[in-house]
């Protein structure tokens, strides 16, 4: 919806002004989102052990400390495993559930809708304890990363349903009908028409799952076996404190994800051209 396409009654500057204001607003928005992260990164290079101004000397010692922390490295690995598996699982079941919720009418649909949202409504500490009671005394399972993943899928499922469903609302089903009329099999129709159209919703759902799971602490604590995940590691530094070592870790994560995402982006763009 570029302004150029609007009726050309006003002078040029009048069309540019809203656009400029919008861009300025967007810029401010990003400043808001990135200010804390900038602060975090700055303090990862600051020699003081506390996160407060004024800054002291430049140092890399917090990065050096990271290298020696085996518990932390193990936790990072566990976090990645849990997050990836949860993301795939929750995205699949969530997407599957979104279709009937949007496309079919059935009795009790409103209740089912609310029911699927329930896991978001109950505070995590309670869900965690409830799951632990189910897993150990009731089902006699051995706690492990698998039980963590099971719990995380419950937490993330509703988010995927919501995102995919909001994409499906208003989806033009005539496109599918047209494909079928032209003789496409249901599978072909799904892969070539439906799937590409809902893909942004599915990806958004996956991203949200990834994000939520990567940072989830309390349900993980109760459902995990003798391992630790990254948020657990960060949370447990309670008695004697967060060090800028964690800022260093966060900075590396920022640089890594930003790098990966932007590189992937530019690669995709190049291929598209």
């Amino acid at each position: 919806m570029s302004p150029e396409r609007f009726p050309r009654r006003s002078p040029r500057w009048a069309l540019r002004l809203p656009r400029l204001l919008l861009a300025l607003y967007g810029l401010l928005g990003f400043v808001f989102l990135y200010l804390p992260i900038a602060v975090l990164i700055v303090f990862s290079f600051n020699s003081s052990a506390v996160i407060t101004f004024p800054l002291q000397h430049f140092t890399l010692s917090w990065y050096r400390e990271l290298r020696e922390d085996f518990v932390l490295l193990g936790a990072v690995r566990n976090s990645i495993v849990v997050t990836v598996v949860t993301t795939v699982g929750a995205t699949l079941v969530g997407t599957a559930a979104a279709f009937p919720l949007v496309r079919t009418g059935f009795r009790m649909k409103r209740m089912v809708n609310l029911f699927l949202l329930l896991p978001i409504v109950i505070p995590g500490i309670l869900t965690g304890i409830a799951l632990l009671i189910l897993f150990v005394p009731v089902l006699n399972l051995t706690l492990s990363l698998n039980t963590v993943i099971a719990g995380q899928i419950v937490l993330a499922g509703p988010f995927v349903v919501l995102v995919v469903a909001s994409r499906l609302y208003g989806f033009n089903q005539q496109l599918e009908a047209a494909a079928m009329d032209l003789g496409a099999t249901p599978w072909r129709t799904f892969w070539h028409v439906t799937f590409p159209l809902i893909l942004p919703g599915v990806l958004a759902g996956a991203l949200i799952t990834f994000t939520l799971t990567f940072d989830e602490f309390i349900v993980t604590f109760f459902t995990i076996g003798p391992e630790s995940t990254l948020p657990m590691y960060i949370w447990s530094l309670v008695k004697f404190g967060v060090t800028p070592k964690l800022n260093a870790l966060a900075s590396i994560i920022v640089v890594l994800t930003l790098g990966t995402l932007l590189t992937a982006n530019s690669l995709l763009r190049r291929r598209a051209r």
């Binding site: 804390p36 992260i37 602060v39 991203l207 948020p231 920022v254």
Partner: peptide, 22 residues
């Protein structure tokens, strides 16, 4: 969009902490 999501991937706890320094 990538830039909007990015902050999420840094520890929630650390980001909230950062606000005390702001």
């Amino acid at each position: 969009l990538t830039l909007v999501i990015m902050p999420f991937w840094t520890s929630y706890l650390l980001r909230v902490y950062a606000w005390t320094a702001i």
